[in-house]
Amino acid sequence: MRRLLINKIILTLSTISALIGLAFLAWILVTLFVKGLSSFHFSLFVNDLIDNGLRNLIIGQFILAGMASVIGIPLGMVAGIYIREYGQGRYANLIRNLSDIMMSAPSIVIGAFVYAIIVVPTGHTSGFAGSIALAIMMIPIVISTTDSMLSLVPKELREAGIALGASKYKVIFDIVIKSAKVGIMTGILLAFARIVGETAPLLFTSQTSNYFTLDLTHAFPSLSVSIYDLASDVQTSSRDLAWAASFILTVMVLVINLTGKFITRNKK
C-alpha cells in the first residue's frame, strides 16, 4: 500500500533528522568537554587572567549577573504583578506584548543602547554599564515568568483573601505570591542562567579586565567577553584557556538550569 510506504518513509526521515540534530548537539558537547577538560586545571580558580587564570573573570561574571539581578528581578516581578493583578485590560496587554518584544530584542542592540546612555556620558566602560545591559535583558524574562506563574493561581484564592477583609496588596504578597513562589523562583533561576552566559551586551559596556577588581565604575572582568578575546587569539595557549573558560561557563549555566528543573520537578 502506497500510503503505508509514505508513512514509513516520513517517519524514518523524521527519526533520521532527529538523530542528525542530536549528533550535532552531542558533537558540540563532546568537543566542549574534551577540549575544556584537557585545558582545565584547578589553578584556574586561583589565578587571575593576567596570570593565565580565570578567577577574576568567573567572579566578575557572577557580580555582573548578580548586580543585574538586583536591579532586574524586583522591577520585573513588580511589573509582572502589575500586569497580572492590577493592570486594566488594554494597557496590561500592551505592556505584556512589549515585554515579549523586548525579550527578543537583539542583545547587541541593548549593548549599543547602554553604550550610548552610560558609556558615552561617563567616558569609559564600566561594570555598572554591563550590569544595566544585562538587567535590561533580564526584566522582560522575569515579567513573563511572574505573569504566567501568577496566572496559574486560582481566582478563588484571591477572592477568599479579599473576603476575609485583606487589602489587595496584602492578598498579593501573603497569598498569591506565596502560592506561586516555586514557579517564580524557577523562572528567575532560568533568567539568571540566560544572562550569565551572555557576551554581546557586555562587549562594549563592561568590556573585560585582566585583573581582579570589585570596582564597578571601570572596565570589569567578564568571563564571556574574555572567551571571545582569547578564542580569537593566535596563540594556542590562549585558545586552550578559552576552551577551559567555555567549559566552566557552560557548566555554570547548565547547573543553574538543572537546579531550576529539579525544583520544578520536586514541587510536582
Partner: peptide
C-alpha cells in the same frame, strides 16, 4: 534538547 538550548551562543561560535 532543552538544556542545549541554554548553552551560551559563544560556545557554538567556537565549536
Amino acid at each position: 534538547i532543552e538544556l542545549l538550548a541554554a548553552i551560551p551562543s559563544i560556545i557554538f561560535g567556537m565549536w
